[in-house]
Design a protein around this nucleic acid. Structure first.
Ligand code: ZN
Ligand code: ZN
Ligand code: ZN
Ligand code: ZN
Lengths: 147, 147
DNA sequence: TCCTTATTGATAATAATTATCATTATCAGT
DNA sequence: ACTGATAATGATAATTATTATCAATAAGGA
């Protein structure tokens, strides 16, 4: 069985930890494993509760500490939704947009290649703002939930 | 002096409260006044602390209760940002996007007339999702902060 | 003005996050 | 593989944000 995308992210994250002088500990591995194997953006509490399913699990403080570290290293990002805003998801290289199923929470990352530069230029002219970033996210129903 | 846009929103909100059988009380008026006169999206706590500047002010519980009511009536919405997600802002009629200054927090609402329907169709084909809504928000620097 | 009752304020309870510190375990150096 | 320095953990206390409770108050119709 070839290594999955998840395994690739996991080992890349461990390399990043090591190369920054951070230790790869069991609690950190557990949290990273949960994040990378999820199909939905999980909250810190959800990550903690998932970890309880194992026979050994990290303390809640270590979950938060790991998330803080992964965030500082730019490995994760927060996903915002109308119903809740602490969803954790691996950072994807380059500009992108996310697509979330309202029903089951399943997430997809859309590699961003849309052209809204014209729209942005118009907004800058209208408002006098200089725009340097944007969030574009889509909400809907995934194919599984459509059936 | 002609009535400002803020006064117009305020009296419209009071009408909405009355027409739904809710009383227009002093605490509610204070919270509504703070929200409608702000140039930035305020958190519940910020709204409460601003209210303390007056000689009489609502209890923190009434601030939350008022926000809950305004939200239920669709009069306010939450503004999400990388740094924090409980910003309260008056709802604007129709589809729109928001533009936030990273430096001072000043907000502008852009009446949404962008054309991303082609992009959405492409995403639906790629992913099998049905997309029914989206968030598009811009971050940058306002003209005041550019000087 | 009076009366009904929706709403408030004070505060307790709950929930989420952060701080503290003695103990544990990673991993570089042998 | 063993050892030691110390980064990191777990348990728990502290802090912060939000919600629930309930007797007292005040909005607004009669
Ligand atoms: Zn958010
Ligand atoms: Zn779904
Ligand atoms: Zn500004
Ligand atoms: Zn739009």
């Amino acid at each position: 069985m070839e290594p999955s995308a998840k395994d690739h992210i996991l080992s890349s994250w461990q390399d990043t930890l090591h190369s920054h002088g951070f230790r790869v500990t069991r609690p950190r591995q557990q949290v990273m494993e949960i994040i990378t194997s999820s199909t939905t953006a999980l909250t810190p509490q959800e990550i903690y509760h998932k970890s309880l399913e194992g026979e050994r699990f990290p303390g809640i403080a270590s979950v938060y500490r790991t998330l803080e570290l992964l965030d500082k290293l730019g490995l994760i990002q927060q996903i915002h939704q109308p119903g809740g805003c602490h969803g954790i998801w691996p950072t994807v290289e380059g500009h992108n947009h996310c697509l979330i199923c309202r029903n089951c929470g399943q997430m997809k990352i859309i590699e961003g290649n849309e052209d809204i530069t014209g729209y942005i230029a118009r907004i800058e002219n209208q408002t006098g703002y200089r725009v340097d970033d944007h969030w574009l996210q889509f909400f809907g129903t995934c194919s599984g939930c459509l059936d």
